[in-house]
Amino acid sequence: MNASIYFQLALFLAVLMLCAWPLGSYIANIMSGEGYRFVRLFKPAERWIYRLCGVDPEIEMGWKQYAFAVILFNLLGVLMVYALQRLQADLPFNPQAMAAVTPDSSFNTAISFVTNTNWQGYTGEATMSYLTQMLGLAVQNFFSAATGLAVVIAMIRGFARHSATTIGNFWVDFTRSVLYVLLPLALLIAVFFMGQGVIQNFDAYKTVTLIEPLTYTQPKLDAAGAPVVDAAGVAVQETLTTTTQTLPMGPVASQEAIKMVGTNGGGFFNANSAHPYENPTPLANFVQILAIFLIPAALCLTFGKMVGDARQGWAVLSAMTLIFVVMAFLANAAEMQANPALAGMGLDQTPNLSQSHLLQAGGNMEGKETRFGIVATSIFATVTTAASCGAVNGMHDSFTALGGMVPLWLIQLGEVVFGGVGSGLYGMLIFAILAVFIAGLMIGRTPEYLGKKIEAFDMKMVSLAILVGPFLVLVGTAIAVMVTDGKAGILNPGAHGFSEVLYAFSSAVNNNGSAFAGLSANTPFYNIMLAIAMWFGRFLIIVPVLAIAGSLARKKRLATTSGSLPTHGPLFVVLLIGCVIIVGALTYIPALALGPVIEHLSLHAGN
C-alpha cells in the first residue's frame, strides 16, 4: 500500500462531495418545478417540446401509467437504434463507408444503449458510422440516464407525498432531466475534455507514417478470415512489419462527456478510456471518475431535500461511500501485489524508484496504461463498477484474480454503491426498505421508513426487485457454460474462463457494460442472451420500483415516535451496509468461489 491511494481517494471524495452538494439541491428544485434564472431561459423550449409531443405537463400519472410510458419510450428507442445501425451504410456522416451492422449485434447494441448498459460486443471505430454514434448511441446515453433520473424522482415522490394517487408525469420528469441536468453538465464536461486533448471532428481516419517501422506477430488468417492452424491444431503465427498507422477520428468529446456523466460507459473507441483520444491526461482521468459519481452522489442529497430531512440523504450517501472506500482499498492492495507466477520465473518485481523515472511499478501492470499506473487504474475500476458506468481505463481481465473480483462483486451487489444515474439510488432505497423490514422483524414492530408503513405489497415488490438480478445472472451464466455456443466464446479455459462468462452476465443484468475482455461475445448466442439479460435486468427492477412508489404515495405519513427506528444515524447506515453486503455475499459467493477464488488459490499454488 502506498500513500498515493490515500491522497487520490481523499482528493476525489472531497471534490465529489463539494460538487454533489449544490447539484443535489439544484436537481431537487428543478424536478419540483421550481425556477432558477438559468432555467427560466429554457422554459419556452420545455413548453415547446410538450406542445410538439402533445403532452399536458399538468396531468400527473399513477404508477402503472408512468411505467407504461417508460416502457413505451424505451421500446421506441430500441427500434430507432436498431434501424440506424442496419441502415447506416445508406445514411450520411459515414466517411469510412462502414457497412450495416449485423442483425444480432444491432439487436444487442440497441438494447445495450437504451438500458444504460453500453455493453459493446463490437469495435466502435471499425463498426459504427459517425451518424450512428451521434444520433443513435450518444442520444441514448442522454435518454437512458434521463429515464433512470425520472424513475428515481418518481420513487422519491412516493416517500415525500401522502394520500396521493399519482407519482408525477414521466414526460415532464424526462424532459427536465435532459434539458436542465444532463445537457448542461455534458456541455461543460465536453468542453473541458476538448481542452485536455479529446478530439471532436468529422474527419476521415488519418494514415500517418511511423517514426520507426514496427514488427509484430499475429495469427495468420485464411481468405475467409478464419485462423490458419497447423497439423497439431495450433494457430499459425505470421510476422509482419508496418511503417504506417491509421488514426481513427470522430466527434469523441461530446460522446465522452455524457458517457461519464450519464454513467453509460460505452466508448467511442474499443480501448475506451485507455485510449489517448478519449482520456488524454491524468487530469482528464480525474474528471472522468468525478463525472461518473457526480449525479448518483447528488441524487442522495436530492432525496434528503425532497423528503424534507437532509440527514436521510446523507445516511444513504455515507453507506455508499463506506462500501466504495473499502472496495477501492481492496482492489488497489490486490493490484499492488507482485504476480507469484512471474516471481517463480526469477523476475524482479520490486518497485524501482532509484531512477529518475519509475522503471518498475512494483505490482501488476499487465493491462494498465502506464500514464495512469496502478492506483489511478484501481480507483477507476472501482468507481466504474460501483457506479453502473462500465467505462474502463485498463483491462479488468488482466487484474489479479482478487483484484478482478472487486469490480465483479461490486457489479453483483446490484449497482447500488452510487450506481447508475437514478438506478443507483432507487436500488439502494430498495435495500433501505429491506433493512427497515429486517429491523422491524428483530424488534417486533411494523416496519416504517420515512413515516411510511412497509406492508406486504411493498415487500413483494422489494423481493422481486432484489431477486430478479441474481436469477438472471446465475441462470444466464449456467446456460452459457453448458451449451456449445456459450463455451465456444470462452478463450481462456478453466476458472478464469468461468469468471469471464460470470462477469459478462453480471455486467449485462446490472447494466454496467464493462467486460472481462477474454470472452468472444460478438456471436448470435451471446448477443441474444446478453440482450435478454440487459432488458429484463433494467425493466424488471424499474417496474417494482414504480409499484412501490405508487403504493407509498397512497399511504398516510405516520408521526415519528420514540419507537420509530431512526434512519438517519450510524446504526441505520451499518444496517443498510449489512443488508447490501450479506444479500450480495449470500447470492454470489458460490459462483465467485468457482471463478476468481479458485484462480487465486491456483496461482499461489504454482499452477
Binding site: 413505451l72 421500446l75 439487436f107 440497441a110
Partner: peptide, 30 residues
C-alpha cells in the same frame, strides 16, 4: 432476419407490460 429481431424487441416490451399488470394484481391497485 430483421423481422425476427424486431419481433423479439416487441416481445420483450410486451412481456414487461404483462409484469406491470401482474404487479398491480398483487395489490398495486389497492
Amino acid at each position: 432476419m430483421d423481422l425476427i429481431y424486431l419481433t423479439g424487441i416487441i416481445l420483450f416490451a410486451a412481456l414487461t407490460l404483462l409484469i406491470i399488470k401482474g404487479c398491480s394484481r398483487l395489490g398495486g391497485d389497492l
